[in-house]
Simulated scan of single mutants.
Amino acid sequence: MDDYPIPNIPPVYWKAISNNDSSFDNKFYYGVKTTKIFCRPSCKSRTPNKNNVYIFKEAQLALEFGFRPCKRCQPDNLLLPNEEWVELICDWIDENFQDDMTLNSLSETFHSSQFHLQRTFNKVKGESPLSYLKKIRLTTAADKLKNTDYPIQVISSDVGFQNNAYFSTAFKKYYNVTPKNYRKQFR
Rank of each mutant, 00 (worst) to 15 (best):
I155A: 01
N26P: 06
K172L: 07
K44R: 12
V53S: 01
N122Y: 14
K173L: 07
N49M: 13
F110E: 12
R40N: 10
H111F: 15
I155L: 02
D143Y: 04
C73W: 03
D76C: 06
E83L: 05
K44V: 09
F97E: 03
I93K: 01
F167M: 06
N51H: 14
A142K: 04
N8F: 05
V177Q: 10
I37F: 15
L138A: 02
S131C: 10
P11M: 05
S113M: 14
S18L: 08
S42V: 00
F121S: 03
F24N: 04
L61R: 06
S131D: 08
T102Q: 09
F110A: 06
S18K: 05
H116F: 09
K44H: 05
Q74I: 01
E64P: 06
Q162N: 12
V86P: 11
M101C: 10
C90V: 04
V124I: 13
K27T: 05
L133P: 02
A16C: 07
Y4V: 07
E127D: 09
E83V: 12
D21W: 06
Y175D: 05
A142I: 04
T35E: 11
P75H: 04
F56N: 05
Y166C: 01
Q114H: 11
L79T: 09
K144C: 04
W14A: 04
N52I: 12
W85G: 06
M1C: 13
K125L: 10
D2Y: 12
